[in-house]
């Protein structure tokens, strides 16, 4: 089980990487994240919504009004060019982070 604190910095990366494939709405994003993380991490609805709004505020995603198959109104989110660029940076940053942390835990696990 991963703590919310440990993963907080990478919720944006998760959302952007999912939106890179296609536009989506908040609940679907939560579902997709759950499908990938399984029981190791459950994203809170407010965490996801906050991330989406933060990305929208930074012009990394845009939103538009759409409707579900059943006609229910939904807000869809779509990644922007800035968002794609930011995602690339975040991915690079993750590789660096992982490599740095790995250097510390080397030899810790017997």
């Amino acid at each position: 089980m991963i703590s919310a604190d440990a993963i907080r910095g990478y919720v944006d990366l998760m959302v952007l990487s999912l939106l890179r494939q296609r536009p989506s709405y908040a609940y679907e994003l939560a579902q997709q994240i759950h499908a990938v993380t399984g029981t190791e991490y459950t994203i809170k609805q407010t965490t996801l919504y906050t991330a989406v709004k933060r990305l929208e505020g930074a012009n990394l995603v845009t939103s538009y009004a759409g409707a579900s198959a059943s006609g229910k109104p939904r807000t869809y989110y779509q990644i922007t060019a800035n968002g794609l660029e930011h995602l690339e940076q975040k991915v690079a940053e993750w590789h660096d982070t992982k490599s740095v942390v790995d250097r510390f835990i080397e030899g810790v696990e017997a």
Partner: peptide
Amino acid sequence: GNLDELAPQLGISAEIAPGSSSAAPVL
């Protein structure tokens, strides 16, 4: 989850002080 983390994104910052642990630290 917790509405506190959402507050700064919605411009209801009167409820949130600078440097709060729940302010968005991500990008």
